[in-house]
Design a protein around this nucleic acid. Sequence first.
DNA 1: ATAAAAATTTAGATTAATCTAAATTTAAAT
DNA 2: ATTTAAATTTAGATTAATCTAAATTTTTAT
Lengths: 218, 218
Amino acid sequence: MITQTEENYIKAIYHLGQQGMETVSTNAIADSLNTKASSVTDMLKKLAEKNYADYIKYQGVILTKKGKKIAVGIIRKHRLWEVFLVEKLNFTWDEVHEVAEDLEHIQSEKLTDELDAFLEHPTHDPHGDPIPDKNGNFKQIEKILLSKALVGSKYQCVGVKDTSSTFLKYLDANEIALGTELKVLHKEPFDQSIKIKLNGLDTTVSQNVAKNIFLKTL
Amino acid sequence: MITQTEENYIKAIYHLGQQGMETVSTNAIADSLNTKASSVTDMLKKLAEKNYADYIKYQGVILTKKGKKIAVGIIRKHRLWEVFLVEKLNFTWDEVHEVAEDLEHIQSEKLTDELDAFLEHPTHDPHGDPIPDKNGNFKQIEKILLSKALVGSKYQCVGVKDTSSTFLKYLDANEIALGTELKVLHKEPFDQSIKIKLNGLDTTVSQNVAKNIFLKTL
DNA sequence: ATAAAAATTTAGATTAATCTAAATTTAAAT
DNA sequence: ATTTAAATTTAGATTAATCTAAATTTTTAT
């Protein structure tokens, strides 16, 4: 049996290693889970023991096939619940994360699959992230950060990197949502802030903001 | 903060003490939670320490007002989720219990209240048990066990005592559901089995079955 | 190439929940 | 009113997850 804590470590490793392809450091995991490095070391030994990860002392960790499957399953559940919360229970996109963190650990294949069907097999969660299907397959859409966008080009907002409540509320206040179209007008060399045309009017966003908005080319 | 284990003990005490009005024994709790009496003793000390229960060594335990509030809150969540699973996710009434045991521990007032609204404020779960409202209020309907029913009288099935999958499947197979009307034809003195008219035809149920079906007088 | 800094691991404790086995208290039975 | 049986509690261990502080390894910088 797998514990909730083990699941959280596996998910963290998966996210830090982007699809579990890169080796992940002890400290990175500790930071992301708000624990101490020594706790992480203990858990990595256990995950390796249980064949969820390959771990070499001092060298980092990487998920095994088995570990990746667990990770994708949790992410699928997390994102499906987020859709449910927003579409059926009137949650806003900045409210769903904490609750989904708990719901993602409920173990019931029937629950997950029926929820998926009830929501009509959504492909993306409220933050624009893709939802793996029952077999764990999903494709990342071609997307770039606003900070890397070209001056003069038109884009559509398709996702966010930071999903913190504060950032999402900032976007709401500035009327930036998934699907919003924008044109990059100017990039300020001094502070990397970016002026964009959005819903007809001109706005400027900081580099920090620009680094957390995903776009697709129009 | 309250742990999931503490919640499970509180719920068990509540159910064993029927609304938390009666004192509950250590062994009764151990049986109901499939643990050992010594583990229960440890937990009772903790619950008393945290003011969820009043506990006197060797004398048993009873929930405090605070403990009862927790219990009712968990029961509310459990039953709301059961309604959701049956009405929205195609679960049958014998499949909902295990999943609801996990879902009931999710802590989010907004989630619970929005779920309640989404389901249009249901008053009873799929087994006929009443669902407490946001303030913890609910009334048990007047109901009697089939085993105590009067020969010659007509009744309607309004609930079940045993909610195990095997029992519920038995009821399904014999076309006994919530709302089903029946007339008590005969009570066999030898084995306390009961002959009833059900959906037009005569059936006999054992004493064991009769002790687990709740009826209301028609 | 070696010293200093950063990252990581080990050793030893702690907390929550559980268990077994022994001791104690309460209830039942003669 | 004792004795026996049943219920309950205590004592001492165990497992999972975590921590601090010390030791070790790797990386960085001079």
